[in-house]
Amino acid sequence: MDRTDFNKFDGLFWRTLALSLPKEGVASCFPDEPARLNRLIEVRWPHGPKCSNCGNTGISWIKSRSLFQCQQCRHQFSATSGTALHRSRLSLGIWFGATEAIIQYRNSSFIGEDMPAHALAQNFNMQYGSARRMRKIINAEIVRGDAGVLLPAIRVESEEDARF
């Protein structure tokens, strides 16, 4: 396969990703941090949270610390534990928005280039180094597809898609 064929497939990949995003935008679909957290939990554990230590499904929520606690082994964990977002100081809103921005930029780019880190930093009011690291993490998550949590969290299946 030559380079032009690869560019066609790459463009198709990014176009498909862009079409799977909410039409009204990720920010309006998940307007606040609790909505984004609930979406992340729903994507990560479709049948409810389970302990990352022992696998128990008896989990309680510690509201003051925004953590889950296993009722069996008492292990505490967050919704982002064990993911690319673990220990991030950035809000889920920034992660969701940046993921959408990178997909939209890559889809609209004629030569398939990645969103510049300085543009990401400027759009989300962050340091250049943080934007570079974030872009690297998001691109790795996109390559992983449904194995990651960011991409499935911002993608919304419409009722029309569900019929097919």
Rank of each mutant, 00 (worst) to 15 (best):
C54Y: 10
A98L: 05
G82D: 04
Y128N: 11
E24M: 08
S158H: 03
S20E: 07
A131H: 05
N125A: 04
G82F: 04
D5S: 13
L17A: 06
D114H: 10
F110R: 06
A119T: 15
A119P: 10
H47R: 14
L21R: 00
E42F: 06
G97N: 08
G25N: 04
L92W: 08
E159H: 05
P22N: 11
Q127M: 11
L120Y: 07
R155P: 00
F96P: 11
A162M: 00
A27D: 14
I94S: 08
I41P: 10
T4D: 10
A147S: 09
W45Y: 08
S66Y: 02
R135G: 15
K136A: 10
A117I: 10
Y105L: 05
Q72C: 09
K136G: 12
F13Q: 07
R89Q: 14
G93N: 03
S109D: 15
L120R: 08
L120I: 09
I59M: 11
Q72H: 06
A101P: 03
M115H: 06
S130M: 04
F68P: 10
H47T: 12
S158T: 15
R15P: 03
H75I: 00
K8S: 13
C70Y: 02
G129V: 15
N53M: 01
R106T: 15
M134Y: 09
T57P: 07
A147Q: 14
R106A: 09
V149A: 10
T99N: 09
T16F: 12
N139G: 07
R3S: 07
D2S: 11
